[in-house]
Design a protein around this nucleic acid. Structure first.
Lengths: 339, 339
DNA sequence: TCACAACTATGAAACGTTTCACTCGCGGCA
DNA sequence: TGCCGCGAGTGAAACGTTTCATAGTTGTGA
């Protein structure tokens, strides 16, 4: 009982071993009567297929892995849910692994996933740049799709969101509302997303009929605390030098900035307008509902999974693609005020 | 190159197949010279062990699965991170699966995990009560640890947090601050956590020298929106009937209630004190920093994983245990006011 | 009646490991 | 000298599937 196998099922049902396998994998090849006998034996013995053996022999797996930078980041959890839907729809199973932004943990996970010969891998690598480690997967016939990283690689698909456009949207919105002293709060600037959003915003402002400057306030991290710090700094400026509008690199910063500004007696958006990025669940629920740039997170996951499965099925005929999604600005109270 | 196996490595290194296996699994049995030859062959061929075959033959897996109700719930992501640390420390790999509170998806995941003969399973089942499905795992020798559910089961370990005590802590705090009209906002009351927190709070108030009532406001869900609804209801009451303090079943409700109360012109905590539950990241960053009952989430995950590994190693000698953690009240501005 | 197709069912080979009983040399000890 | 023990390495069996060539059984049309 502990571990019935196909052989015992075959004996119990009075058929051959191959027939049991056929019932499991190609039931239409088996006559209804035999099929039923086998199914009865299976339930009687509590048989459960051994996937190791199946995978060893069949040479293919049905589990797709997604390796994310941070399981507790809502961005990734939404991506996961999108990917999940597609993989499960296709009869597979999605397992989530967490690198925690630690290259060594990433390495360990990649090693074990390669040993497991997973069907495919969705991954946001810790570092930008080239990823020789991932080429091993591709050579082994395991498709890899990059999520929100290094698009354009010739030997794998990728999905990402256009952060430059996102920055542009936020900055244009603030400029249209009549703001002339606008700041960008974010950092470290070495993070591609932080840099791209800055670039988009700065470019948009510089291109205006009356070009505007984008004051850069760098933060040590993208946390609520860092946002509060930034609020302290801004509140200390004299009103005629203080930015009248701030675009934050993410919502955590923006929420911290919002809270800090209110604590300093600044009115939002009258004294200082704020736009965040990511549209996390709490953006709309903040003391002053937060304007934010929304990324199609679930869509990102869905598309990544679709590309992966397509490559997995099509194999050789597959053409690698790089999908770039467009973000969307949601204007809420924190910036909805004309100067 | 595509898929070198142990045999090819053996040939390339000029040794027998068993020796290669020994290098991989018991390197001390092999002389340094031979070992090096084999290692060179491995890198030369780009050999990566096939885990299916290994697991099939060796009969044991090194991946532990955690099946959670909702990957995007910060409670579970913290549990995951705790468990992760322990499993990786032990040389294993933790994979996360998401049931999304859907019994059918839970079922599918359990089926596939059983087929994969994972080393062990941490799970928060969708439904409370008995779980015949999980017994199959135990019979098959796969240890199961329940997380935050149905403790006391004789054939598996469990870890949970004492929600009754959590409710008690919150209620006692509010009573000590001089509140006499206290409400509990939460629902559906069929969720065990919601009911236990209510029970703890109601009991604590009833036991006081001057017994107090706990007014129950049920909500359709535990969301920010439901909290806002509750705020509308409370604000509509005349000030002499309105509760002066509210204990919410979780922080999402509390944040909604907070935001709604402020929108209705109520001062927090002067007009209405609020205590939440979970101490999510945004509790401290709310417009008025939110008092909350914190659960040792990561600790929960760590302990669950430790129990699992202990059972996995000890096997027969293992004694099932049920660990109950105590929550902790964090008093912040939203309730820090003496009447 | 015969040949042939269509349908079922069979059983052995193969997948890539781990494990274990074994052999082979060699040095030490009586 | 002969025996023993030991370290190093060997190779075959086994794990539980899937797959495939094959065999047996019916039914059909000429």
């Amino acid at each position: 009982m502990a571990a019935a196998n196909i052989k015992q099922v075959a004996k119990h049902a009075g058929v051959s071993l191959g027939t049991v396998s056929n019932v499991l994998n190609r039931p239409d090849l088996v006559s209804p009567a035999t099929r039923q006998k086998v199914l009865d034996a299976i339930t009687a013995l509590g048989y459960v297929r051994n996937d190791s053996a199946r995978q060893l022999r069949a040479g293919r797996s049905r589990t797709v892995a997604i390796l994310v930078l941070d399981v507790s980041n809502p961005f990734f959890t939404d991506v996961v849910r999108g990917a999940e839907a597609v993989v499960e729809e296709a009869g597979g199973m999605l397992v989530v692994c967490n690198s925690g932004e630690d290259p060594r943990r990433e390495q360990r996970h990649l090693d074990m996933l390669e040993e497991q010969r997973v069907q495919g891998l969705l991954v946001t690598p810790v570092s930008d740049g080239r990823h020789p480690r991932l080429d091993a997967f591709v050579e082994r016939g395991i498709p890899v799709v990059l999520v929100d990283r290094g698009s354009g690689h010739p030997s794998r698909c990728s999905v990402a969101v256009d952060d430059v456009t996102g920055g542009r949207l936020a900055a244009e919105h603030l400029a249209e509302r009549g703001h002339e002293r606008i700041a960008y709060v974010g950092g470290p600037i070495t993070i591609r997303q932080v840099a791209d959003r800055h670039l988009g915003a700065a470019t948009a402002l510089a291109e205006r009929d009356v070009p505007l400057d984008l004051q850069l306030v760098t933060t040590p991290s993208l946390s609520v605390d860092a946002g509060r710090q930034a609020a302290d700094d801004l509140a200390a400026l004299s009103p005629d030098r203080r930015p009248t509008a701030v675009f934050c690199a993410n919502d955590l910063l923006a929420l911290g900035l919002l809270q800090g500004s209110i604590a300093h007696g600044l009115r939002v958006p009258e004294d200082i307008a704020i736009v965040g990025y990511d549209d996390i669940e709490f953006a709309a629920a903040a003391a002053v509902p937060l304007s934010s740039v929304r990324q199609p997170r679930a869509q990102l996951g869905r598309t990544a999974a679709e590309l992966l499965l397509e490559e997995s099925i099509n194999g050789v005929g597959h053409q690698h693609r790089h999908v770039l999604f467009q973000p969307e600005l949601l204007v809420r109270a924190s910036s909805d005020h004309h100067r």
